[in-house]
């Protein structure tokens, strides 16, 4: 536990501070003591192999998966030990873009985008609809897309709608789970640009998961690598390609030889 004096010396307290986070599914340890700090107003990129637990990490922060041990502090309060009501209040300040967009396919696009606004019951349907149009425009979609059903959209458009839904309530904290996977390089760059725009404009704190090194350098201020359940390296996103850490080097350069042994059978 860091003392208050020490905290004051370090200046700003991190917006998100994770210590000793553990999560196993059965006998399988997915997270095995994750420590991570994300300063307020910065973007953290988390990289790591497929199945290394990146999505599980974010779902633990949101409380969608129950962590086994550890602490997750947001603004200094441990969310793992909050009651449901306090937790809901924290979650209301977080926006999340899911790996597969997770749009509600029973609702038209505009209701997807405005869902959080309508759920908080502070806006009328007409206002929410207008706001959905604005947010759709921010992610480069025409307002007429709002009347379509999510199943009528391409994968890239779904990602953009998912992004619009995540930012519509102007959250303080945003999580992006592989925002550009499966998109063409140009669309990937466009989405990265949108993410950077949103984060900077709202002054939000962000965690983004990605496999794409170009994308990592575009989105992130800082980067961290998750390997065998722990953060094995963290540093500025610009240093990803020459980190000096053999695990990170092998991953970022996509080498077959190195400390990471691909387990073809699990």
């Amino acid at each position: 536990m860091m003392s208050h004096a020490l905290r004051a010396m370090n200046g700003a307290h991190p917006k998100i501070r994770i210590r000793g986070l553990r999560k196993s599914f059965g006998a399988k340890k997915v997270l095995d003591g994750v420590d991570l700090d994300v300063p307020a107003g910065s973007s953290m990129v988390v990289i790591g192999g497929s199945g290394s637990g990146k999505s599980v990490l974010i779902k633990c922060i949101l409380g969608l998966i129950e962590a086994d041990a550890g602490t997750i502090e947001i603004d200094g309060a441990d969310v793992l030990r909050m009651d449901r009501r306090a937790r809901d209040a924290v979650n209301a300040r977080i926006g999340m873009l899911f790996q597969n967009s997770a749009l509600f396919d029973s609702l038209p696009v505009w209701e997807n985008v405005a869902f959080g606004l309508l759920a908080q019951r502070r806006t009328s349907r007409a206002e929410a609809r207008a706001r959905a149009g604005e947010v759709l425009a921010q992610v480069g979609l025409d307002a007429s897309v709002g009347d379509l059903s999510p199943s009528e959209l391409s994968g890239g458009m779904q990602k953009r709608v998912g992004l619009a839904r995540a930012i519509a309530a102007q959250p303080e904290i945003m999580f992006f789970d592989e925002p550009t996977t499966g998109l063409d390089p140009i669309m990937g760059a466009v989405i990265d640009g949108l993410i950077v725009d949103c984060v900077k404009r709202l002054g939000s704190t962000a965690i983004a998961i990605t496999h794409d090194m170009a994308s990592a350098r575009r989105i992130g201020d800082a980067a961290a690598m998750l390997y065998e359940g722990r953060i094995v390296w963290s540093g500025p996103a610009g240093a990803l390609m020459e980190s000096g850490n053999p695990v990170v080097d092998q991953f970022t350069h996509g080498r077959r030889e190195g400390p990471i042994q691909m387990q073809l059978r699990r």
């Binding site: 949101l62 969608l64 809901d88 977080i94 899911f98 597969n100 997770a102 509600f104 959080g116 839904r165």
Partner: peptide, 15 residues
């Protein structure tokens, strides 16, 4: 909805 994360998405949208 469960396997496509839509139920989790509800949780993140104050619902």
């Amino acid at each position: 909805m469960r396997v496509t994360d839509q139920i989790d998405a509800l949780d993140t949208l104050s619902t």
